[in-house]
Amino acid sequence: MATHTVTTTWKGKMQFESTNPSGETLLINTAPEHGGGEEGLRPKALMLSALAGCSGLDVASLMEKMKLEVDDFKIETVASLTEEHPKVYDAVTVEYHFYGSNLNEAKLQRAVDLSVEKYCGVMEMFRQFAKMEIKVLFHHQ
């Protein structure tokens, strides 16, 4: 079984630096109203980035394998937090936006479906605690 190790080191005040198995690092911080600063990513929002990144990598790989023409591709991830502490995401909408003049909507939909239903491990983790809604939008240029 594979394991991942991440080391997160306090850098003072409310800032941490976290490593990644690739060797890259990122800064984590809280909002200024909670004593944090401007530098660094918020922990819960990082989870949404991980979700979009995981699925996006799947879709990008499938777009290449399917030889699909896409000028641009972005993922908007919107999550609602519960009111009670600990505040958690209870509903997440993932919107896949494809831009181009020659979009093959059926194959792009298939790529998203494969990521959502089969390949994206982060998506499966999110399903354990949140209601997931998936939207695919095509922007013909």
Rank of each mutant, 00 (worst) to 15 (best):
F98Y: 09
E95M: 04
L46I: 06
K11A: 06
M47D: 13
A2K: 03
E69V: 11
Y96Q: 04
H140D: 14
L48R: 05
E24M: 02
G12M: 11
K107N: 15
G12W: 09
L137V: 04
S22I: 01
C120N: 10
H34F: 13
A91D: 08
F129L: 07
L68N: 01
K107C: 11
A111V: 06
G53H: 08
D72A: 14
P86D: 00
E95T: 05
G23W: 04
A52V: 10
T5R: 01
F16Q: 09
G53W: 08
T25F: 13
V116L: 02
E95N: 05
L57W: 13
T5N: 00
S55Y: 05
L27E: 09
T8L: 04
C120F: 13
T93I: 04
P43Y: 14
T93R: 08
M63L: 07
L108H: 02
R127S: 15
A79R: 12
A79P: 07
T7F: 04
G56N: 12
M125I: 03
H4G: 10
E64M: 06
R110Y: 03
N20M: 05
L41K: 08
L26S: 13
K74Y: 12
F73N: 05
T25G: 08
A31W: 11
G56C: 05
D72N: 12
E69K: 13
M125G: 11
H140Q: 11
T9Q: 02
A111C: 12
Y99G: 04
L26I: 07
E39D: 06
L137K: 03
D58Q: 06
R110M: 08
L68Q: 02
